[in-house]
Write a protein that binds this DNA or RNA. Structure first.
Lengths: 338, 338
DNA sequence: AACATTTTTGTAAGTGCTTACACAACCTGA
DNA sequence: TCAGGTTGTGTAAGCACTTACAAAAATGTT
């Protein structure tokens, strides 16, 4: 809109050099009180705002961190972003957010966008960003050569990549075990591709069965294809599964949304919860309190994870040696569905 | 980490000038195919990523839009951000996200941060950003002199400020009217400060009462102070209110979270829904499908609002004359609580 | 007052990129 | 073959800021 006010304008009006203005701007100590005041007054008067591009060019850093996520409208991810953003801001860092969706191509694009902005670090939220094949992770390895890469809830062993995560395997194992202990021997593992870490959760689930010398029934591993917010459709899928002859007395869902869907299914099928069918969700989100009966769920301490991640990052940026991997334990919170 | 690869490195290795490299980078047509290929190959080989600071300095724009929100972990805001971010990305724009919380001081800080980044526009999500007093909005007026300011779901008549919103007044009026029509003459207006536009919703509610020549009972306007995710606490507040002798046969909540709290209250108090007490939420979020009974709610067409906002913005940035205010209607979605 | 220090300020050279302008190379068609 | 295009490429001047280095000013010491 308007012509930009630059430090030249300030320097001229204040009768000092641009270097002095710059010093004032950067809180450099070597400026006389009187000069400083004069410059600050004129900055105020002219409504000057420093140009971050120019500044970034000189400093090759603008204290900004890039956050990559698949879908910021997912409750869990939204919460994570909130916690991370807050912690970063408290440390004087700003945030660039990019949502990538789930296509590899877009993830790569977003990554290189962030690199071009010369962010001080890139935070990837969720295991969505780790691909199956080594080759498909090459862009991450390369990015990590330029700037530290932080993973939340994912696990990747590359140089300069740091992971902060919850041990989903163990938490799933324990949750499943608790269902088995209560006599639910045919627990359905209900997941969709968006649930981050579904694979680890599945392994934990399977391990529990093996541990108890119970058979792992392939039919009981059920992949939900639909929309992650469409409760009705989840319930219908489960109904269909039941009708197809698959028998189950418990549902372990890979996130709370699916857990709510499971509750809907059980209720509309006239099953008693938890007697006929026990249900456990994952994330311990607010949804667990919204349903009737309230949903038992695995709490993976998101807030702790996020603040730890930022703490680690701050350490790295200050040049300290930091652990590559920090792992917390999850914890089953029993409510009315177990 | 590593020394940056610049266009000088590319130009040298390719045996062309930096201008040519720059042209290739910007998809300028006036480059011979052969030259272009050579340059691109070397860019690939050296793993070059353009420096956004330098680029921004030259162009004084980096196609980025700043988004300001109070709390990105709020479901509704998170969704809005998602829709906006997606639409912007489809138009070749990137996003800087800043969460400000609810303190004026922090809002101002975040705003000037975005200005310093020379964003092409600033989008403010939610009415949280409009203060009571003219004076406290001065920073917005000033910002708008530098760059277009877009409001989602808020209403401010400044030059270069554009608003896209749902007519919450009207929607609330209609929702309340529909409760009155069904015989609920003592509807509680249940709100908290975080619900954006609570004031407009309240006016709509009150207008409906006046319209029907019913008294507006001050006791029925109830402000919830607690945490916006603590369903139990909401229910307890309502219980307390009831015990204090306030009588109501309907609850109109300013967002779905509060609506869920209202359901919890009604159920634990042994009231029949909707016979004894009807409940309406606001936002028509996913939560409406999670509860039993499912929550009726006002849909304010968030996705439409967001895409319209971005459409308007793109028009502005292309230099077109655009309407300052675009208003959609909300719509009551009746489910099992009405 | 003369000198040594310390503090304050200015000059100018980056920082990596875009782009106006100039020039060279390559085509046309007469 | 040459004037008059086109097309392709290079030179150099920004863009708004930081900062090393040099110079000037202020202060202290004798």
């Amino acid at each position: 809109m308007e012509k930009q006010v630059t430090i030249y304008d300030i320097s001229e009006k204040a009768g000092v050099s641009i270097a002095t203005v710059s010093r004032v701007l950067n809180g450099n100590s070597n400026v006389k009180q009187k000069t400083r005041k004069k410059v600050l007054d004129i900055i105020e008067e002219l409504g000057y705002t420093p140009n971050a591009f120019a500044r970034g060019l000189g400093l090759d850093s603008m204290n900004t961190i890039g956050i990559l996520c698949a879908d910021s409208s997912d409750t869990y991810i939204a919460k994570a972003i909130f916690y991370i953003e807050r912690a970063l801001r408290e440390n004087g860092y700003n945030t660039i957010l990019c949502c990538t969706g789930y296509k590899l191509e877009n993830k790569k694009k977003a990554l290189s966008l962030l690199l071009s902005k010369r962010v001080d670090s890139i935070i990837m939220v969720g295991s969505h960003f780790v691909e199956e094949s080594e080759e498909d992770n090459a862009h991450i390895r390369e990015a990590a050569m330029r700037t530290p890469v932080m993973f939340l809830n994912a696990d990747l062993d590359y140089k300069n990549v740091f992971c902060t995560l919850c041990d989903d395997y163990k938490a799933s194992f324990e949750a499943t075990q608790s269902l088995i202990d209560k006599g639910h021997k045919n627990v359905l593992f209900f997941y969709n591709s968006n649930s981050y870490g579904a694979k680890k959760k599945l392994s934990g689930y399977q391990a529990a069965y093996l541990q108890n010398e119970l058979p792992v029934n392939k039919d009981l591993i059920y992949f939900y294809h639909g929309n992650n917010e469409d409760i009705q459709s989840m319930a219908e899928c489960l109904k269909k599964l039941e009708k197809s002859g698959v028998d189950f007395d418990g549902i372990f869902a890979s996130d709370d949304n699916l857990g709510i869907g499971a509750i809907r299914y059980a209720k509309t099928s006239g099953k008693r919860i938890p007697e006929d069918i026990a249900i456990i969700g994952y994330n311990n989100s607010m949804l667990t309190e919204c349903s009737t009966p309230r949903l038992s769920s695995v709490d993976n301490h998101l807030e702790t994870l996020c603040s730890q991640l930022v703490k680690t990052l701050m350490g790295i940026l200050s040049g300290n040696e930091m652990p590559q991997k920090i792992i917390f334990s999850g914890e089953l919170v029993n409510r009315e569905t177990t």
